[in-house]
Design a protein around this nucleic acid. Structure first.
Lengths: 208, 208
DNA sequence: GTAATGTTTGGACAGTTGCCCAAGTCGATC
DNA sequence: GATCGACTTGGGCAACTGTCCAAACATTAC
């Protein structure tokens, strides 16, 4: 087998990232230690600082990689849904696969919090989520949504995360039960293009 | 000065709780140390373990106390709002006072996450939030909401937290801009009592 | 006065942390 | 063969952690 050193190094690096992704939900962002990650990845403790400058660097890389995969998959699937109501149903169905206390949900939440203390992480995660929101917004308009698609997409994305958040505390909370009000939001928007009586509302506030 | 020993102890204990409430958002739930809290409270390091069995105990007590005050205040103010639309507006207005990266928001989020690893905290925080949701649900029905008030309240509470979450990443996200879709969600529920079966939007049945 | 009670102090303890580094392994290249 | 470079090892270090404790302190009861 022609396993070059470089190739071997890449797989080791990936194993470290995977170990970090698994550990953050278990012990929390700040609870992950170099020795933990190394043991989980099956390598010597010192190897962590060969591939990453610091533990934080490792966590940031691991978290962003995971989020990118998750959002891309979600956006791709959503794009395949023919109409809005069906898309919402599918999203909530997808959401019910996450208990709110499962590793994927927890990792995302941990990233949100860590990003408030890590400017670089906030910047890069913000770009990822902004991209997802834009995809959802264009999907909404393409499917005939008449209101402020930007605002609706922002609210939809926020609601999804909020539901996930609340499920962490109340596992009995069934996302499917929330389909009614959530669909009402968008179907109402389709027939009532002007939801707010005030000026044309934009999601962004800080614009000259 | 008639400062009894017991009274002095109580104020010291409160100072420790206040210090913990201030520190969790700054350094994260897991980043708070005994010496940090003691220094912030202006007492000797050892005093923490006189008033609390462990650092975790201190954090749980501090977090629950803060959450109780916040939710009680919110519920009381909401009860005073005469109609649903106005209440939603007020809630979002209130929410815009929180940047999503402010101490109050961060403490709540940190508690959510910590609760996934601390059964006792999850139990007690779940009770508090369940109570708040019940208050909102009865407020909705009392104001004429015809759909599933429980589901609507759950979704509303989740949306609020989700918006807070997203604002942490995108400070430019203006809650007021989300008023339109969010109002649509509940006003639509007022005219369409059965949301699941009838997705059609031709609802003109106005209730007197 | 003395004794009892509740609170505070500052240091001690063992364990853990992130980060570093000299020595080592192993395949690719000469 | 020898040499090179990428990668890995396991231990070392100073700094920090939660928890504990004997002693000091202040306040109240006798």
């Amino acid at each position: 087998m022609a396993t070059h050193s470089a190739e071997r190094g890449r797989t080791t690096r990936q194993r470290l990232l995977d170990a970090a992704v698994a550990l953050v939900p278990e012990v929390g962002w700040g609870g992950v230690t170099t020795r933990m990650v190394a043991e989980r990845a099956g390598v010597a403790p010192g190897v962590v600082h060969y591939h990453f400058a610091s533990v934080t660097d490792l966590l940031v890389a691991a978290g962003l990689g995971f989020a990118a995969g998750l959002l891309d998959g979600l956006a791709a699937e959503l794009a395949a849904r023919p109409d809005i109501g069906e898309g919402i149903d599918w999203l909530l169905g997808e959401l019910s696969r996450y208990s709110g206390a499962d590793p994927a949900s927890l990792l995302i939440l941990e990233m949100f919090l860590a990003s408030t203390r890590l400017p670089e992480l906030r910047e890069r995660l913000g770009v990822q989520i902004g991209g997802f929101r834009a995809v959802v917004a264009s999907w909404l308009t393409a499917r005939g949504y008449r209101g402020d698609a930007e605002a609706a997409a922002a609210l939809l994305a926020a609601s999804l995360d909020g539901i996930m958040l609340h499920r962490a505390l109340d596992p009995g909370l069934d996302p499917a039960a929330l389909t009614g009000p959530l669909r009402a939001m968008f179907t109402a928007g389709q027939t009532a293009p002007d939801p707010a009586s005030g000026p044309r509302t934009s999601t962004r506030r800080t614009e000259a």
